[in-house]
C-alpha cells in the first residue's frame, strides 16, 4: 500500500486517548480490591476509640479501661506524685521520653501527659508483655524499699516504672510504658485511641 509506514496522526491520537482511558478505567476497577484490604467495619468497631469520663477519678486514684484488647490506665496524680517525677530523674533510663514510639508528640514532656495531673498509659510491660502491678504509694509500705518514689512494678521479671510510666535503670524492660493516643473531648471526658486535634 502507498501509505505503508506512514503514521496516521488521527489514529495515533485515538490510540493514545483509548490507552489513557483504559489505564484510568483499570485504576478505578482496582480500587475496590485495594480498599477491600483495609480494616473492615467489624475491625474498625472493635478497634474504635474508647470514651472515658474522668471526673469520677479522685486524686491518687487509678481507673483501668480496655482499648483494643489492652488494659489502659488513667491515673489522676496528686501534687506529691507530680513532685516525685522531678526527683527520680537520675534513676531512669529515658527521663525525657526520647523513644518516639512510646508516646505521641503532645505527651513528650516531663509528666508524659496532656494535663499534668492526668496520666494515660497502656498497662503492658515493655519487656515481655505482662501487666505490671500498681505500687502508687511512695516509701517502704510499697514493699519496694524506703526510697521507692511510687509507680508500677512488674511481678514477672521485676521491671519498675515511675508515676509517669518511665522505666528504671537496671531492670529487664528497655523502654518506658506506652502512652496511647488520646484527646480531651471536654474537660472531664477523654477519648482514647485518637490523637489530639491538630497533632500529627
Amino acid at each position: 500500500m502507498s501509505d505503508e509506514g506512514v503514521v496516521d496522526p488521527r489514529r495515533r491520537r485515538l490510540l493514545i486517548i483509548t490507552t489513557g482511558l483504559g489505564v484510568v478505567g483499570a485504576a478505578f476497577a482496582a480500587t475496590p480490591f485495594v480498599k477491600s484490604m483495609m480494616p473492615s467495619a467489624r475491625a474498625k468497631a472493635a478497634g474504635a476509640p474508647v470514651e472515658v469520663d474522668i471526673s469520677r477519678i479522685e486524686p491518687g486514684q487509678l481507673l483501668t479501661v480496655e482499648w483494643r484488647g489492652q488494659p489502659v490506665w488513667i491515673l489522676r496524680r496528686t501534687p506529691e506524685m507530680l513532685n516525685s517525677l522531678k526527683e527520680d530523674v537520675s534513676l531512669l533510663v529515658d527521663p525525657d521520653s526520647h523513644v518516639d514510639s512510646q508516646q505521641p508528640k503532645y505527651a513528650q514532656n516531663p509528666t508524659r501527659s496532656i494535663k499534668p495531673e492526668v496520666l494515660v498509659l497502656v498497662g503492658i510491660c515493655t519487656h515481655l508483655g505482662c501487666s505490671p502491678e500498681r505500687r502508687l504509694e511512695a516509701g517502704s509500705e510499697s514493699g519496694l524499699g524506703s526510697d521507692w518514689p511510687g509507680g508500677f512494678f512488674c511481678p514477672c521479671h521485676g521491671s519498675k516504672f515511675d508515676l509517669a510510666g518511665r522505666v528504671f535503670k537496671n531492670v529487664p524492660a528497655p523502654i518506658n510504658l506506652r502512652v496511647p493516643p488520646h484527646r480531651y473531648v471536654v474537660d472531664t471526658r477523654i477519648l482514647i485511641g485518637v490523637d489530639q486535634k491538630g497533632a500529627a
Binding site: 485495594v34 484490604m37 483495609m38 480494616p39 473492615s40 475491625a43 478497634g47 483494643r68 484488647g69
Partner: peptide, 17 residues
C-alpha cells in the same frame, strides 16, 4: 501497615489474607 494487616494489630484478617 493497617492496609497490610487489615486491622490495627495482626489479627484474623491478617491470617486469612
Amino acid at each position: 501497615a493497617e492496609w497490610i494487616r487489615g486491622d490495627f494489630v495482626v489479627a484474623d484478617a491478617t491470617l486469612n489474607r
